[in-house]
Simulated scan of single mutants.
Amino acid sequence: MAIFTAAVVQAAPVLFDLEATLGKTADLIEQANGAELILFPEAFVSVYPRGLSFGTVVGSRSPEGRELWQRYWDASIAEGDAACNRLGAMAKAAKAFLAIGVNEKDLVSGTMYCSIFYFGPNGNFLGKHRKIKPTAQERIIWGEDDGSTLSSFDTSLGRMGGLICWENYMPAARMSMYQKGVQLYLAPTADARENWQHSMKHIALEGRCFVFGCNQFVTKNMYPNDLPSIADLQNQPDVMSNGGSVIIDPLGNVLAGSLWGTEGILTAEINLDLITQSKLDFDPIGHYARPDIFELNVKNQPATQKV
């Protein structure tokens, strides 16, 4: 089995600035030094709006919150738009598979989704995954997917797919990925807690797959000073997200990271033979699955795409 290099980018976008974020993305892809798979964090294009309320409380919304929503919408991306096509061009220039967390705006419904966009080394848009369950206050700003984008891709590097942030705590959602035979499990997140590391190791061991945990490093001074509702941030810490990106092999061994307290790029050599070796004694969809006892049916689940 061929060995390839994968990269996990831990960085912040230029918050609420789509154009500048795309420029920074291009620079970071170039710094990945020839990696054939490059992963960016949740909501990298162009902000995970940590600490912001959008002027919402139960029963009312503020004009300032609606203005902030406009800024947020304008910094977001739609499938097939010019920004999406630029990301594809970046993947093509790098000759890499690119997976990047985006705020995806649906131009028909006006709904925003937290999504992963996938691009191939030829620059093609391969598909996307929309988060099926936003957490807590995220439910104000993001819609819920219907399961039809629980996507996976059979690529020249291996089968890749993944879940976003706390979707990874959903046992049935994880199992839907395992059922597809995902070998390269992508987990962009906004969770910078130490306990998240245990979840990443557990998924690697449970799924017998390579796990790529990817988070942002964000400080409060990165937020534009002219944001509506900027007062929301007064009581927030100076470091809003401390990172914690990591790459883990199918036996739970850390190959790179965890990276804390700075922006940076983690790289690791990936050898899919380790997946075969790890399945000597455990396989979540094989001899350990007990289909005579258990059955999981996932509504609207798409087939794995051959790319």
Rank of each mutant, 00 (worst) to 15 (best):
I141D: 06
L272W: 01
M240F: 03
A78P: 09
S229G: 02
V108I: 11
G80Y: 06
I100L: 07
G51I: 02
L18C: 08
G181H: 05
L255M: 14
F294Q: 06
H198P: 02
Y169Q: 13
L274V: 00
I140E: 15
A173M: 12
V14Y: 03
G101F: 02
S53E: 03
P250F: 02
L37C: 05
D292C: 05
T304G: 09
V182P: 06
G143R: 08
D27M: 12
V218K: 13
L52N: 07
I270F: 00
M177W: 00
M175P: 01
E295V: 00
H287S: 11
S156T: 15
V102K: 09
P291A: 06
E138G: 11
T262F: 00
A83L: 07
M222E: 14
C214S: 14
D145F: 01
D238W: 01
S53K: 14
E206L: 12
Q234W: 02
E295G: 13
G120V: 01
S109P: 06
P188A: 07
N85T: 03
L255T: 04
T25L: 14
M112Q: 13
I116L: 14
T56P: 02
G264C: 06
S46W: 01
S229A: 08
I132E: 15
R290C: 04
R193P: 02
A78W: 00
N235D: 15
K201A: 09
Y72R: 11
Y288S: 14
L186M: 14
M175C: 03
R130H: 12
R71W: 06
E295C: 08
S109D: 05
G264K: 05
E206Q: 10
S152K: 11
N253M: 04
T111G: 03
L37V: 08
V211K: 06
R159E: 03
E263C: 03
A32K: 10
I265V: 07
D154P: 07
T21I: 10
V298E: 07
L22E: 12
S258H: 11
I265P: 11
I230A: 13
S245N: 05
Y169V: 01
L126Y: 05
I38N: 04
